[in-house]
Amino acid sequence: MYKILKAGNLAGPNYEMLVEAPRVAQRCLPGQFVIVKVGEEGERIPLTITDYDREKGTIELVYQPIGVSTSKLSQLHTGDRITDFVGPLGQPSELTRMSDEELRTHKFVFIGGGVGTAPIYPQAKWLHEHGVQSDVIIGAKTKDLVILEDRMKAVANVFITTDDGSYGRHGMVTKCLEDLIAEGHSYDYCVCIGPMIMMKFTCLTTKKYQIPTIVSMNPIMVDGTGMCGACRLMVDGEVKFACVDGPEFDGHKVDFDLAMKRQTLYRTQEGEAFLAWKEGKTHSGGCGQCGGDK
């Protein structure tokens, strides 16, 4: 059992959680993820690490509840215990393997969309700790959904953009990136994390500017150790498992359309499960189609 040292709502639909997991905290690096399971009946939920403290043995997660399992997770409080917490999983970010000299040769831009801003943070922090200042674009629908602004500002130059213009710049992250380039910023290394559709369009934009771009994929997963193949993606025409080969890949080579289709596989079941969890067994099965009355 893994103790929750802090849990709560961060902003809008985004939640945070600080968990005691010494083995994970000892060895994790930016870009890696953990799998969390709540209760005997729970699903295994992959979540990218937001921050870690080796001395205190803690891992911080920021996530957005979207189904039954993540909603159950969000209902846990400080002091509660998580049944299973395993990691670190996946390959660390490429930039963690670079020497300080190599890091200094690059001009980094990070682009975080929505809750995808969270996994950007440890990477920007890593660069900061290695003496490299990076630019970070935080994109959100609206002002209230901007997360981690202050902490990000402590480690990088931050540009905020909102879809509705309620805070920072107005528009999508792709517009923000193009504006920054037009304003004279130049980049040769981009890391983009957020919804699949946002990563797809960011990659189209960075391709135009020939900026190599890393994306973090979050497909459906079960074990997270390479056993099941549920998370398989096509990257540069080859099958890759996000859990062991990734989760970060060359965004210009990822088949996003396929990845987006594969992500919808359990959508109906997830939706039904979520309704049943939220509303109880309201469906009487009278339609004669779904078998709910049997």
């Binding site: 056993m227 099941c228 499960a273």
Partner: peptide, 26 residues
């Protein structure tokens, strides 16, 4: 969609007990 490794199919069913209504894994 609908192509699985036997490992995935069996892991969902056996380890995660997806065949039971009281378990969350689909």
């Amino acid at each position: 969609k609908g192509v699985f490794s036997a490992n995935e199919f069996l892991t969902r069913n056996n380890l995660m007990k997806a065949y039971r209504d009281d378990y969350d894994t689909p």
